[in-house]
Amino acid sequence: MMMSEGVEWALHCCLNLAFLGPGTAVPGARLAAFHELPPVYLHKQMQALVRAGIVSSTPGRRGGFQLARDPAHITLMDVVAAVEGQEPAFRCTEIRSQGPSGSGGTTQAICTIEAAMRKAEMAWRRALAEQTLADLMATVERRYPATPRRISSWFAAG
């Protein structure tokens, strides 16, 4: 399964907002400029995050986007689902009912391939649901201690 680049963009923006702390609203254009992203396309991702209740948007001159929840309560799966949707990655179309070995109609037993794909997708979704923005923040702070300060400084200078 290939996720859109919007997932990466949304996760990085959420992480940046998390490092900036609660109450700090950042205009979408400024978020886009930080990673040199196209503002119009990033805005679509940010609006998906607003609809999902992950970020909030404040209009006006001092407005922008900020996290709507504590980073410990935002999972990677929340962000992926907001941007990509909830549809399953694999869709069984019951091709086993066609061709020389098929029954010509639907079969009663669950397709073995569909069951295996669902199991794998559930493991993937669980792994994403077990990781929060707070977990990512802790990893960044441990591996790259200067990064949170660099992010805060860059946005403060804007």
Results as ranks from 00 to 15, higher is better:
Ala82Val: 15
Ala123Met: 10
Ala10Arg: 06
Met122Ile: 00
His73Tyr: 05
Gly64Ser: 02
Gly105Met: 06
Ala115Trp: 05
Gly102Tyr: 07
Phe155Arg: 12
Leu133Phe: 06
Ala29Thr: 05
Cys92Asn: 12
Ala82Phe: 08
Met1Asn: 06
Pro27Arg: 06
Asp70Met: 01
Glu130Thr: 11
Met1Thr: 07
Ser57Ala: 02
Glu141Gly: 04
Cys92Thr: 15
Gly158Phe: 02
Ile113Leu: 15
Glu114His: 09
Ala52Phe: 06
Arg69Tyr: 00
Arg126Val: 12
Arg143Ser: 09
Glu8Asp: 05
Glu36Leu: 02
Arg143Ile: 02
Ala138Pro: 08
Leu11Gln: 14
Arg91Ser: 14
Val55Trp: 13
Ala81Asp: 09
Met137Pro: 10
Gly21Val: 05
Cys13Thr: 12
Pro145Phe: 03
Phe34Trp: 12
Gln66Phe: 02
Leu133Gln: 14
Cys13Val: 09
Val140Leu: 04
Glu5Thr: 11
Gln86Tyr: 07
Thr107Pro: 00
Thr112Ser: 12
Ala33Tyr: 03
Pro100Val: 12
Val80Trp: 01
Gly85Ser: 05
Arg30Asp: 00
Ile110Tyr: 03
Thr139Tyr: 00
Gly102Cys: 03
Phe155Asp: 08
Ala82Thr: 13
Val50Cys: 13
Met77Pro: 02
Gly99Lys: 11
Ala127Met: 08
Leu15Glu: 11
Glu121Met: 04
Pro148Val: 00
Leu133Gly: 11
Ala81Arg: 09
Glu8Ile: 15
Phe155His: 13
Ala48Pro: 03
Ile54Lys: 10
Ile113Ala: 11
Met117Gln: 14
Leu31Ser: 00
Gly53Ser: 10
Thr147Leu: 13
Ala127Cys: 08
Asp78Gln: 10
Ser153Ile: 00
Met137Ile: 10
Glu87Tyr: 10
Pro39Val: 00
Ala115Pro: 05
Arg61Phe: 02
Ser153Met: 15
Leu136Glu: 15
Leu49His: 08
His12Met: 10
Ala10Tyr: 10
Cys13Ile: 11
Ser97Asn: 15
Ser56Ala: 09
Arg69Asp: 04
Val40Ala: 06
Gly60Lys: 05
Thr132Lys: 11
Arg150Gly: 06
Ala48Gly: 02
Ile74Lys: 04
Pro88Asp: 04
Ser103Thr: 14
Glu114Ala: 15
Gly53Thr: 14
Ala48His: 12
Arg51Cys: 03
Tyr144Pro: 00
Val83Phe: 02
Leu67Ile: 01
Ala18Leu: 00
Gly23Thr: 00
Gln86Gly: 13
Ser103Gly: 15
Tyr144Glu: 13
Met1Pro: 09
Gln98Asp: 13
Pro71Ala: 08
Pro100Thr: 10
Gly104Tyr: 06
Met137Val: 10
Leu42Glu: 04
Glu87Thr: 14
His43Gln: 03
Asp70Cys: 05
Met46Asn: 01
Thr107Lys: 06
Leu128His: 06
Ala25Gly: 01
Gly6Thr: 14
Thr107Arg: 09
Arg125Trp: 06
Gly99Arg: 10
Gln131Asn: 07
Thr24Met: 09
Leu67Ala: 01
Met77Glu: 11
Ala81Lys: 13
Tyr41Gln: 12
Thr24Ile: 00
